[in-house]
Design a protein around this nucleic acid. Structure first.
Lengths: 211, 211
DNA sequence: ACCCCTTTACCCGTTTTCAGGTATTGCGGC
DNA sequence: GCCGCAATACCTGAAAACGGGTAAAGGGGT
């Protein structure tokens, strides 16, 4: 019996998925969580084998949650579930210890396959995600790491609220030039041209709270 | 028997929801669709009583789909299903003929209540959505209409791709000044300060394809 | 100990956006 | 037939962002 915990901020999604999974004889849904913080508590209580983790949750982000879980429970399997080919996170998540990564627009057959695979100790990536990974390798020859740093994400978040570089600098108690450097570094490493595009990138990557 | 069609770009969500709904004796899931275009075809073939419509789908947007459906099938009930308190759309959707509006982070009890209510000819709004509506009324005394025009949305989409005002103008074969005017009008009516914030607004409103 | 990455900071010339107007055409609704 | 809104277009000065550098301190990992 594979004990599963579902973490997603949309209760409707959890309810639906639970209804779908309980039909399987080798799968048991032991609990759910709506925020990153709840996941930690729920895992503590329920001790699942596999956590289906949506990275786009309010509060703790996917990497932080994955890292925290893996540190405390090294044997736990984490299957990332997301709507986007979350470019900014893929590398980080794989390094941190996620066992798999699947998109929400895949069918339930693939989901079950993924669950059984990671439970057995393997790794599983949605076809589209695998393509994104190799696509990047092809484009830059080297396996470029496009993940953003904590500070960079912090700055995107402020910019997305409509603050100017100067205002962000004041809010974070750093120099205008520093914020400008961070922004420019992000544009360069993500190969984007301006802040507007950067915000869309961040939104699509699940970096920004979609309220 | 209430015949239901589910439209959402995430197959996993459709599968889950279907599994959940088929347990009800008065509900029947007759089909699904992953894009706006598919919805029109699927409704033609399946003739559902109620369409659960996610507005954040690639292709046709929620208003366009709702308008097309209502025009062809005036008796059909449309229940908008979304993750956001999609501010830019609420007014437009209600005017266009949606019978209800519920958020994905509500539980299945509320979903079923909504389905039965709209099928019976009533309207149903998630508590949070109702709050957003009244909140706006309170804030501006008048029921301000914050919906964006077709052209405005077109312009946001281009801006989100990293194009400058000049480039958007060239692409749409209009004057630089016109694009500038549209952008400024949007900032003014949405009470935002710059393009970065506008992009986040658009993303949160489901105006931009989240790929 | 060394290297890499993060975070910090600075300069400058050019382009773009912002904020504040004004104004005309054309279409759909009443 | 008129009203209103959508879409179009224009102007200007000030502020901000962009692109292109350079540089140095500090932390984590091998």
């Amino acid at each position: 019996m594979i004990r599963i915990l579902i973490a997603d901020d949309h209760q409707m999604f959890i309810d639906g998925l639970t209804s779908l999974l309980v039909k399987e004889k080798d799968v048991e849904v032991t609990g759910f969580a709506n925020t990153g913080e709840e996941v930690l508590k729920a895992v503590e209580n329920r001790r699942p084998d596999v956590v289906l983790l949506d990275i786009n949750m309010p509060g703790l982000n996917g990497i932080q949650t994955t890292a925290a879980l893996k540190k405390k429970y090294p044997d736990i399997k984490i299957l990332i579930l997301t709507m986007y080919k979350t470019r900014a996170f893929i590398n980080g998540l794989v390094r941190t210890g996620a066992s798999g990564y699947i998109l929400k627009n895949t069918g339930n057959a693939e989901l079950l396959e993924a669950i059984r695979t990671v439970h057995a100790g393997g790794t599983f990536y949605s076809k589209a995600v695998a393509e994104t990974l190799t696509e990047r390798v092809n484009r830059y020859t080297e396996t470029e790491d496009v993940s953003l740093s904590k500070r960079e994400i912090e700055i995107i978040k402020e910019l997305s609220k409509g603050l100017t570089t100067k205002e962000v600098a004041e809010k974070l108690f750093i120099s205008f030039y520093t914020v400008e450097t961070h922004r420019k570094n992000m544009l360069a490493k993500l190969q984007l041209t301006n802040t507007a595009e950067l915000i869309l990138y961040a939104a699509q990557s699940g970096l920004l709270d979609m309220e």
